[in-house]
Nucleic acid binder design. Structure first.
Length: 870
DNA sequence: GCACGGACTTGCCCGAATGGTT
DNA sequence: AACCATTCGGGCAAGTCCGTGC
């Protein structure tokens, strides 16, 4: 954590005032984020423009419990940075606050573009609507909403807002309404199927885990959401208000750029802007309840501040907005650290039973192979073949070793195991020393100074050589990933910054660049696939990353305003006579409904996996009357297996796309991701396929949290969160392999339950006897038991029962989650503001949900208004 | 409009650290 | 304190999507 503060921080909460951060030495550790004191970066002497401020990503860790009333008091997390930095000056000793590059999400601009687009589009009705772009028909549909609900009528309960919900969420809302085909139990059934199938032992090997329902099926008509009026004409909709707020001037947001967050929050909500997010974060503004006069003064001051001011902002452009916009102004860092050179061990492997002499280079590669003995890769011929072919190049044609089959790496393997064991046996003192030594060596590489702010670097360690471990059936698995040298590495750094010293004497960097349109600090070509690059980026906790994260979620939120129309549009496309259009419609439907990935084309030298656009005929099986069974390997060769009920037109369209094709042919032969995304961009500015995943994940969380959270204790609320989290993970097909010890753990639990049940029986017998005034029987081990009263025995029985029930619940949860990975969605798909706001509303300490690194990563979200909804 | 280079996000796994239990 | 399960966080592979140039 990039916090340089020797004291602990305390979040203090004035009665109804702002939350401010105070230093407190007595603050109990419990509610404090453990703020580390990073060793000062001795490299700062070359700081450009002189100012260095610690980027404090750590969120205030005071739980929201104490500040949840703070619907009016917003903790500006970014504020946190500066006060902290101010508490103790950073290494430069300068307490001033640097400009933080807070580009604004130019959603507004984009929306403006979109409006332009929509209005210039041709919306006239024609005989054949299929000839119109979906975007055009979209508008039309929304103006004739009844047309867009061909399948099932919406019930009166369906509110306009339904469009904002994921299909799955809307399902439950429809439960019990007439015409609802699927009910809650269906949903549960689907979910439980996941669990059941997931228990198959082959999961790990085959990645065959079955995720039955990514998004529980809902009534088909919910897709249409036809009742929803186009937001464009809805005066109360946020979109409308956003549009209204769009001014022709390019600097739409300037007015409140410098307004403290709390003020702007109030402002934005007053203006009907749904977004409580802050476009620009002003650091170190102590939010106080000062009157508007002083507030205005503050704003004025901020506005006055020029380019060099600590409040000045850098570019506001979105990364996606094209022509090389600036990501930073000054950038200082120390380059990358290399793995240590190879230390030959001299242990001789055997060839045809005889020891073989190897050069250090040959031995190094042999060792890489030897130590992989216990992995699944050793069962794969491709791995061994690739290894052999690369190793043989090192050995040379005339080497005594002529084939891999006769190689015995056991001596090296044993040596390695011994080394591992030695390391394990080190005393904790010794381990600590080693760790500190390593940290000391790495310290200088851990930080970069971006526009005067000290930020953590993500992956400053150059990847060591090794054997390539591709996932799934990767054609290149086992190939030698050669060592990377300074001459492979391009460094990106500020023009005025000192060029990092090359850490390997006598060698030098490949190239030095000063490109401030990109965020990488260094890159090298991937030795396995030289067309690809390996980048060194800033850590997730950095402002740069935080900013784009926020933009991602803002874009997904924007989709909420468009989703109704988009669904109406693709529904129309299902029956289009234009095959491309029809395929686009069906693909968009699948991406929306099932949260599928886009599915880019892949090279032959990659594992054979697919996404939506690259689905093969064989990946989808039609099951009459209207079910589709999906079965394919997706990203990371994780199997996606799901049978879903779809709208009949979709079902028929799929049948049509499959007609006269072989199993390996493309289902969507007219489609690729660029066409699909180009189309999506017509519907909403910046819209791409992956936005649907973010949208669906976040809206599901938001909806489930808000529906399911009941009054109760914190533990119960956390369970609600975990259930929602799990639901999202299932939707996104985030899987994990079953832990090796899973079955052992389960049987241990079963054993314990059995023991408890035996004890229960005994207690019941004793109770019977006690009621009859008889003493208890001797226990199984022959010991005499205390003579308890019936009341005491009853109490014990109840306790035991409760214990058994809890253990059974735990077991079930464990089994349920054994193949579900919750982390991925938390890190990548769930808008943290949903979580933070929910925590504030329900007095759940945020630390119960976000760990230290998530708190740092989501620092930008911590000040969200408790009323925030996705 | 397409191929390709390039930049960035997403995703699973595994070893280390942490935390709970006996 | 030893043991075991869980969580954390790094590692790096594998995606998405953009821009460019032909």
């Amino acid at each position: 954590m990039a916090v340089e503060a020797s004291g602990k921080l305390n979040v203090s909460d004035d009665e109804d005032g702002p939350v401010i951060f105070k230093r407190s030495n007595t603050a109990s550790k419990k509610n404090q984020l453990n703020l580390e004191v990073p060793p000062s970066n001795g490299q700062n002497s070359g700081v450009q423009k002189g100012k260095v401020v610690q980027s404090v990503k750590a969120s205030p860790t005071k739980s929201f419990v104490g500040i949840s009333k703070a619907s009016t008091s917003h903790v500006n997390t970014s504020n946190v940075k500066s006060p902290l930095a101010n508490l103790k000056a950073s290494s430069s000793g300068d307490k001033s606050r640097p400009p933080l590059e807070h580009k604004m999400l130019n959603a507004v601009k984009e929306e403006k573009d979109c409006i332009k687009h929509l209005s210039k589009d041709n919306f006239e009705d024609s005989e054949d609507e299929d000839n119109k772009p979906l975007s055009a028909r979209l508008k039309m549909n929304s103006n004739h909403t009844s047309k867009a609900t061909p399948v099932v009528q919406k019930t009166s309960e369906d509110s306009d807002d339904d469009d904002d919900l994921p299909l799955s969420a809307r399902l439950s809302r429809n439960v019990g309404t007439s015409g609802s085909k699927y009910n809650d139990s269906d949903q549960k059934k689907h979910l439980s199927k996941v669990q059941k199938d997931g228990s198959s032992a082959s999961i790990k090997q085959e990645k065959m885990s079955t995720v039955s329902v990514k998004r529980p099926l809902d009534k088909t008509n919910s897709l249409h959401s036809s009742a929803k009026k186009p937001k464009l004409s809805d005066p109360t909709s946020s979109m409308k208000s956003k549009q209204v707020s769009i001014k022709p001037e390019p600097k739409v947001d300037d007015d409140d750029d410098h307004i403290p967050i709390s003020q702007r929050l109030a402002k934005s909500s007053a203006s009907g802007n749904k977004s409580s997010s802050v476009k620009k974060v002003v650091k170190a503004v102590k939010v106080n309840k000062a009157g508007s006069a002083s507030f205005k003064k503050q704003v004025k001051n901020l506005k006055k501040s020029g380019k060099n001011s600590e409040y000045s902002k850098s570019t506001k452009l979105l990364p996606s907005s094209g022509d090389g916009q600036k990501k930073w102004t000054t950038l200082v860092h120390n380059g990358v650290i290399f793995p240590p050179p190879y230390q030959p061990h001299g242990v001789k492997m055997l060839y045809k039973g005889k020891p073989v002499d190897l050069t250090p280079e040959q031995e190094e590669v042999a060792t890489m192979f030897a130590v992989m003995r216990d992995t699944d890769y050793m069962q794969k011929d491709r791995f061994k073949d690739n290894f052999w072919s690369d190793w043989r190049k090192l050995l040379g044609r005339n080497h005594v070793i002529q084939n891999l089959k006769d190689c015995d790496f056991t001596p090296i393997y044993d040596w390695y195991q011994g080394e591992k064991e030695k390391k394990k046996q080190l005393s904790s003192e010794e381990k600590k020393v080693l760790k500190e030594e390593k940290a000391k060596q790495e310290e200088k590489y851990m930080w970069a100074i971006v526009d005067g702010v000290k930020e953590k670097v993500g992956n400053f360690r150059v990847e060591p050589p090794g054997l390539f471990r591709g996932r799934g059936e990767h054609p290149k698995m086992g190939k030698l990933k050669r060592r990377i040298h300074p001459s492979d590495i391009t460094i990106n750094i500020g023009k005025d910054a000192p060029i990092p010293e090359c850490p390997i004497p006598g060698e030098s960097w490949k190239e030095i660049r000063h490109d401030n349109t990109v965020t990488w600090l260094a890159f090298w070509n991937d030795p396995i696939n030289p067309k690809m690059f390996k980048y060194v980026f800033l850590a997730a906790s950095s402002s740069l990353k935080g900013q784009s994260d926020k933009e991602k979620y803002e874009k997904a939120r924007m989709l909420k305003d468009y989703i109704g129309n988009i669904r109406a549009a693709y529904t129309k496309g299902f029956t289009s006579k234009d095959i491309t259009r029809q395929q686009i419609a069906v693909a968009t439907y699948l991406i929306d409904k099932l949260a599928l990935r886009a599915g880019n084309e892949k090279d032959d030298d990659e594992a054979d996996t697919v996404g939506c656009c690259t689905l093969k005929v064989e990946n989808v099986t039609a099951e009459p009357p209207n079910k589709l069974k999906f079965n394919f390997l997706g990203k990371d060769s994780i199997r996606y297996e799901n049978t879903v009920e779809v709208e009949l037109p979709v079902y028929n369209a799929i049948l049509k796309f499959q007609k006269e094709k072989g199993p390996g042919d493309d289902l969507f032969d007219q489609l690729d991701t660029s066409k699909l995304n180009a189309h999506l961009k017509e519907l909403m500015p910046g819209l791409t396929a992956k936005v649907f995943r973010t949208f669906n994940a976040s809206i599901t969380l938001d909806d489930m949290l808000n529906k399911e959270t009941k009054d109760g204790d914190v533990a119960e609320k956390i369970v609600v969160y975990q259930i929602a989290n799990k639901q999202v993970a299932i939707i996104c097909n985030h899987q994990r392999s079953v832990s090796k010890s899973h079955s052992a753990q389960m049987s241990r639990l079963t054993e314990k339950i059995d023991e408890l049940q035996d004890a229960l029986k005994e207690l019941k017998t004793d109770l019977d006897r006690a009621r009859k005034g008889k003493p208890p029987l001797k226990s199984a081990d022959g010991k005499r038991k205390k003579n308890l009263t019936p009341d005491a025995l009853e109490k014990k029985i109840n306790q035991t029962n409760a214990k058994i029930e809890k253990m059974q619940r735990d077991m079930k949860t464990k089994e349920d989650l054994k193949t579900v990975a919750l982390g991925t969605s938390k890190i990548n798909y769930l808008d943290p503001r949903i979580t933070v706001a929910w925590c504030k509303r329900h007095e759940v300490p945020i630390e119960k949900i976000f760990n230290k690194s998530l708190l740092a990563k989501f620092a930008w979200a911590m000040d969200v208004d408790p009323d925030f909804r996705f």
